[in-house]
């Protein structure tokens, strides 16, 4: 039975404990940022930022809504990135059947920049980022080291309000349904995002479009070319494999 996250944004205070805990656990160095008129920093996910609180603010009819979105990899059941990577170099991206964690291995270093880009566009949530220094494709790995040792991921451990939860998928689905029923009373538009397809389930209180560009599933080659076999997909993508296989 895979594991799942439940990120209940109705409880998030954007304290960014998760964002920092992730960096700390992964020993990620700080990146240089600038103040540009928003609290969201760094501006986007990156090779040293697998977890990021996205901030959006709106003046609604009766009140201000400041929406916080603790962004991370969704650990899809049928990960588009893996499908893309398999077409290039099988084994570069793997999926742990025990946890459902989608894991990027050292083999992703063998991708060219363009191939890495091809894999990125396969992700409906725009999560993967290539580390320009090492060439490795990077993102959240569910803190697989911690999970194997019986602990929760660093971000979940740190969360102070119960926004982030982690456990057996069934338990998280149950918790999600309970929370949703409660949150809906205050926020009628509340919903669980793509709960059937992903292991990182977001509970949002407003229309998902309001959170950020990729809070919605985007069209990917995977969805465009659904049903194609590997060869067909590759030729559809039109990307050579010579460099890798040689």
């Amino acid at each position: 039975m895979p594991k799942s996250f439940l990120n209940d944004t109705s409880r998030c205070t954007a304290c960014r404990g998760c964002q920092i805990a992730c960096k700390e656990w992964k020993n990620h160095p700080a990146v240089k940022t600038k103040q540009t008129g928003t609290h969201q920093n760094p501006p986007d996910l990156g090779p040293y930022n697998f977890k990021l609180i996205r901030f959006k603010e709106y003046k609604m009819k009766t009140r201000v809504e400041w929406l916080f979105f603790p962004e991370q990899c969704r650990h899809c059941h049928a990960p588009g990135c893996k499908e893309g990577a398999d077409a290039i170099l099988p084994g570069a991206i793997i999926q742990d059947p025990a946890t459902g964690a989608v894991l990027y291995t050292e083999l992703t270093k063998k991708f060219t920049a363009q191939q890495a880009e091809d894999v990125r566009v396969m992700c409906p949530y725009n999560i993967p980022r290539r580390d320009p220094k090492t060439g490795m494709l990077t993102k959240c790995n569910m803190c697989i080291d911690r999970v194997q040792a019986g602990q929760v991921p660093a971000c979940v451990k740190t969360c102070c309000t119960g926004c982030m939860n982690f456990g057996e998928r069934e338990a998280m689905l149950k918790l999600g349904a309970e929370r949703l029923a409660k949150v809906k009373k205050e926020y009628p538009k509340a919903q669980l995002l793509d709960a059937d397809d992903v292991n990182t389930i977001f509970l949002v209180t407003e229309d998902r479009k309001l959170y950020h560009e990729f809070a919605e599933r985007r069209e990917t080659p995977q969805t465009q070319y659904a049903g194609l076999n590997r060869q067909e997909l590759l030729s559809a993508l039109g990307k050579p494999l010579r460099n890798l296989l040689g």
Partner: peptide, 25 residues
């Protein structure tokens, strides 16, 4: 603010915190 502490002596010099809130606004 959450990411800094008062005059910032400790938090500004902890670079992961400066990354999240880098400049005066």
């Amino acid at each position: 603010l959450t990411e800094h502490w008062l005059s910032g002596t400790d938090s500004r010099n902890t670079k992961v915190l400066l990354e999240a809130e880098p400049q005066l606004y």
